[in-house]
Write a protein that binds this DNA or RNA. Structure first.
Lengths: 258, 258
DNA sequence: CTATATATGACTGAAGTCAATCATAAAATT
DNA sequence: AATTTTATGATTGACTTCAGTCATATATAG
């Protein structure tokens, strides 16, 4: 029988934690500890592998990725399913041989996961997110470029004056970004430095694609990022008619409501 | 048939190394890589487990060492005692609150390990090496800055046009570098792009510190990097009198021979 | 409230892993 | 040189893991 998403996610999270602690657990043991069938245990492992959290081996799984970016993974867990949907839609917008900027954050990370599973030929990805860089590197036909700046360990992000300066070296076709909140007035984020950086991205990109989960609708964050005039594409899983952009004459972009 | 002890030990040592590098190897793969039967492979694994070198799991084995030091570069370093010596000397040259450039490569990585164990207050490290960045990040009192550019996964290095350009953003006090060979004429490296980058580092740094293992003495690599005039400090474990710098009038630096 | 989507457990055959046994050939010992 | 030791490969049967299929119950969406 079907089970609530929350329970499933919680269980998988627990499994990931177990693997972190114990490094190796026989499948039979997983079943016993989580009170699930072998089939479900395997499905959970497959899921964690698909999300790059673990590497499966015959008879077990290795956890390599996780210790690197602790707080990043914590955040990744919220609204995971919605983000995956947004990511799939965004992925299909990527044009072969284009240069794309990938914003730091879990929403765009979900896009990166989708892109890795179904790569687009000759794409050059510019990012200041190390998790995204590590995820995408080595993928056939994809080039990863990191921006310069101070390396902030906990978030796995590169930031600072140099980050904005280095952005100018690149000619961005599509920028895939997110924000912490959005309403009638526009987009909001929590940190002034982040906003300053994002504004530079907006200035330099031909097309601005924003991926905004429904949970962010109607919310404001401390710093105003931009009005809707700068948004070329809006991807959201909020109910279409509720989106605040319809009342905005300035908005001339395209909407993907899913 | 029986086989000489040396051969057996050498093979088991190799297997241990393989496990350290690859973390997990199917038994079939072990057989193929070492040209031995499955039975022998199992016996070797059992031996290594008995000696507390590895922990066997169903279908593979885990190396304890792995969990402590996730970066495989770091593992490579363990045996190279010469580099550790150089690193210790170099570390003591680092001045509090200075900005240091750390070259990519194992020699300077060894220096980074020493610095991590005994940090210098308020130092800012600029590097294009991701292993070094990951190693040093989070260390109390130390700031890590990454240069921009294409992320080359295999070497864990950031490189390209942008790397040289971003270097200009920084005001480097001390540059800690290495090379693949050195002789009377000066320093040599194998890759033209690397050399171009290193020359920019030399131009921009107040003090140039070169760490050169004895094994590199007298050797040349395809591309000429610099004569001895640019070297402010030379650290080497080669016999002092053999060093090629004494015959060079242009060399006005300091020598640490250990 | 109805219809759809999906998370689950049971079952399957195929494939991988394991420990144990045995004969053999080469090293090590005497 | 003769004897002992032992490292090896082949073989066996038991066990574990794995991916796939299917029916079912329930959460979720409309």
């Amino acid at each position: 029988m079907k089970v609530a998403y929350e329970l499933v996610n919680a269980r998988r999270e627990k499994l990931a934690q177990m693997l972190q602690d114990q490094a190796y657990i026989p499948i039979s043991n997983v079943c016993a500890q989580l009170n699930i069938s072998e089939a479900t245990a395997r499905r959970d492992l497959a899921y964690l592998e698909a999300n790059q959290r673990i590497v499966r081996t015959y008879g077990g799984a290795l956890v390599e990725y996780n210790q690197k970016f602790p707080s990043f993974l914590e955040r990744q867990q919220v609204e995971l399913k919605g983000k995956k949907k947004l990511g799939k839609v965004a992925r299909d917008l990527i044009i072969p041989k284009s240069t794309c900027f990938f914003d730091a954050g879990t929403t765009i990370y979900a896009l990166a996961i989708e892109l890795k599973q179904k790569p687009v030929e000759g794409v050059k990805i510019v990012t200041n997110s190390l998790p995204i860089a590590e995820l995408m590197t080595g993928v056939q036909g994809i080039e990863v470029h990191l921006l310069a700046g101070q390396y902030l360990h906990r978030q796995g992000v590169i930031f600072g004056e140099a980050t904005i300066k280095t952005l100018r070296f690149y000619d961005i076709d599509d920028a895939f970004m997110s924000a912490e909140g959005f309403d009638q007035k526009g987009l909001w984020n929590s940190d002034a430095t982040v906003v300053e950086f994002q504004r530079q991205v907006i200035r330099q990109s031909s097309r601005k694609v924003f991926c905004l989960g429904a949970e962010k609708m109607g919310k404001r964050a401390p710093v105003f990022l931009s009005d809707w005039g700068n948004v070329n594409v809006l991807i959201s899983d909020a109910i279409s008619s509720d989106l605040p952009v319809y009342s905005q004459a300035q908005f001339k972009g395209k909407i993907f409501s899913i």
